[in-house]
Amino acid sequence: MVTCKQFLKELNDYLDPNTDPVMKTHLESHVSECMNCFVIVDTTRKTLQVYKGMEPQEIPEDVKARLWKALERKMVAEGTS
């Protein structure tokens, strides 16, 4: 019998698609009976989803321009084509 504390320790494994199916089934049985852990799994999944869906912000133009200038200088100094 998995306790909530044990389940939370294994939460990463539970969320990992590559986890051993036997282990997953074991953890699954806890989630199906424990409303609190079910909500934690659901909201952790959603947390990861919103972060994964976040597009990298545009780099400010002046920052980009300084990066390219620095690289150009370096390439010219080293005679790169």
Partner: peptide, 28 residues
Amino acid sequence: RLLRARLELREKLTRKFKRKGDNAFGYV
């Protein structure tokens, strides 16, 4: 560290995004 970070972020975002009127806490 990943587990701790995920749980902390979940907690913070739940405070922001939770359904109105839901104020349950649990010791888990």
